[in-house]
Computed example of a mutant assay.
Amino acid sequence: MTGSDVLPPSFRLGYVPGVTPAKWARIWADRLPRTPLELVQVPSAEAVALVRGDGADAVLVRLPIDRTRLHAIPLYTETTVVVVPKDHLVTAADEVSLDDLADELMLHPLDDTLDWAGPPGRVIDDRPATTASAIEIAAAGTGLLVVPQSLARLYHRKDLTYRPIVDAPQSSVALSWPEDDTGELMEQFIGIVRGRTVNSTRGATPPKPKQASKKAPAAKKQSAPRGAKRGKPRRRS
């Protein structure tokens, strides 16, 4: 291994609220036990700046983002839900539509992660700074909140519940990293999130095992058929 191939001492991964990298972190620890994976939670609005400013080798973010000089691999899409008090009429249904929320007071936090102009219904002008603070306001009975399901679970409260919205924009989670990072550790993590096995390599076809050469069987000595008389040797005169 040359000096340029030496692995750095650790890999730093940023992730936004609601995203849980624990599964990938466990796989990393199994495959690269001597290279620590550092997890850094970062607000959604600061995730791209973190990876652009060398604060992380890669980040798990919610799309859309500014992809200038960044790669982004979409990983999965989340269900969108409406967070409501447990005694709200919405809880009578298993799922709702945006039209069902048309007459409701709605909260629209400044860190909203959904790709839309704003939620349906009567949006409250005073926008909470964060989703976490919007959850507190919803618990007080002042407005409903539309978020990705993982955020509803992250900020779970006993006095709140949520219902899926069938026709709302959905939140996609992606892995993003700088375009100029082609290092071995980055490739290792990409392989992990894409589900590659430990023995697989990117774009490589495993060589076929060599087959042992088989020796041709020795020719069998033919014996005379049964009952046949052997000729006597001729006498020399």
Score class of each variant (00 low, 15 high):
residue 173 V to H: 02
residue 10 S to R: 15
residue 153 R to W: 08
residue 185 L to Q: 03
residue 235 R to A: 14
residue 202 R to C: 05
residue 9 P to T: 02
residue 228 A to F: 14
residue 48 V to F: 09
residue 125 D to L: 08
residue 109 P to M: 05
residue 150 S to R: 01
residue 141 G to E: 04
residue 36 P to H: 06
residue 179 E to M: 12
residue 7 L to K: 03
residue 13 L to D: 01
residue 31 R to K: 06
residue 126 D to H: 12
residue 97 S to N: 13
residue 164 P to V: 05
residue 214 K to S: 12
residue 175 L to D: 03
residue 10 S to Y: 13
residue 61 V to K: 03
residue 177 W to Q: 09
residue 79 T to K: 06
residue 121 G to W: 01
residue 22 A to K: 07
residue 4 S to D: 15
residue 166 V to L: 09
residue 52 R to L: 03
residue 199 N to Q: 13
residue 156 H to N: 04
residue 54 D to E: 13
residue 169 P to A: 04
residue 202 R to T: 07
residue 58 A to Q: 12
residue 231 G to F: 10
residue 161 T to C: 10
residue 198 V to W: 13
residue 131 T to R: 06
residue 139 A to P: 01
residue 53 G to M: 08
residue 87 D to L: 13
residue 37 L to D: 04
residue 57 D to H: 11
residue 11 F to N: 00
residue 107 L to V: 01
residue 50 L to T: 07
residue 48 V to N: 06
residue 56 A to N: 05
residue 186 M to N: 07
residue 208 K to E: 13
residue 134 A to W: 03
residue 78 E to Y: 05
residue 89 L to R: 14
residue 43 P to D: 09
residue 112 D to C: 08
residue 196 R to V: 04
residue 132 A to L: 00
residue 203 G to E: 03
residue 144 L to H: 10
residue 55 G to T: 00
residue 189 F to W: 02
residue 114 L to P: 01
residue 4 S to I: 01
residue 81 V to G: 00
residue 79 T to L: 08
residue 165 I to N: 01
residue 166 V to I: 14
residue 99 D to M: 08
residue 20 T to D: 15
residue 50 L to N: 04
residue 234 R to K: 15
residue 94 D to Y: 08
residue 89 L to Y: 12
residue 234 R to G: 13
residue 49 A to N: 11
residue 89 L to W: 14
residue 137 I to P: 02
residue 32 L to I: 08
residue 36 P to I: 01
residue 172 S to I: 07
residue 18 G to C: 05
residue 201 T to A: 15
residue 82 V to Y: 06
residue 26 R to D: 14
residue 175 L to I: 07
residue 173 V to L: 06
residue 84 V to D: 00
residue 78 E to D: 13
residue 120 P to Q: 01
residue 44 S to P: 10
residue 38 E to I: 15
residue 123 V to Q: 05
residue 147 V to R: 04
residue 48 V to E: 07
residue 146 V to Q: 09
residue 222 Q to W: 11
residue 25 A to L: 08
residue 176 S to W: 07
residue 111 D to W: 04
residue 231 G to K: 13
residue 215 K to N: 08
residue 101 L to R: 06
residue 72 A to V: 04
residue 44 S to N: 10
residue 196 R to I: 03
residue 153 R to G: 06
residue 209 P to Y: 03
residue 170 Q to P: 01
residue 174 A to S: 03
residue 124 I to L: 11
residue 39 L to E: 10
residue 35 T to G: 00
residue 177 W to Y: 15
residue 109 P to I: 01
residue 93 A to K: 14
residue 234 R to H: 09
residue 41 Q to K: 09
residue 53 G to S: 15
residue 109 P to K: 04
residue 184 E to Y: 10
residue 94 D to M: 06
residue 195 G to Q: 10
residue 141 G to T: 06
residue 35 T to A: 02
residue 133 S to F: 08
residue 102 A to H: 05
residue 155 Y to F: 15
residue 27 I to R: 09
residue 213 S to W: 11
residue 163 R to T: 02
residue 155 Y to T: 00
residue 94 D to N: 12
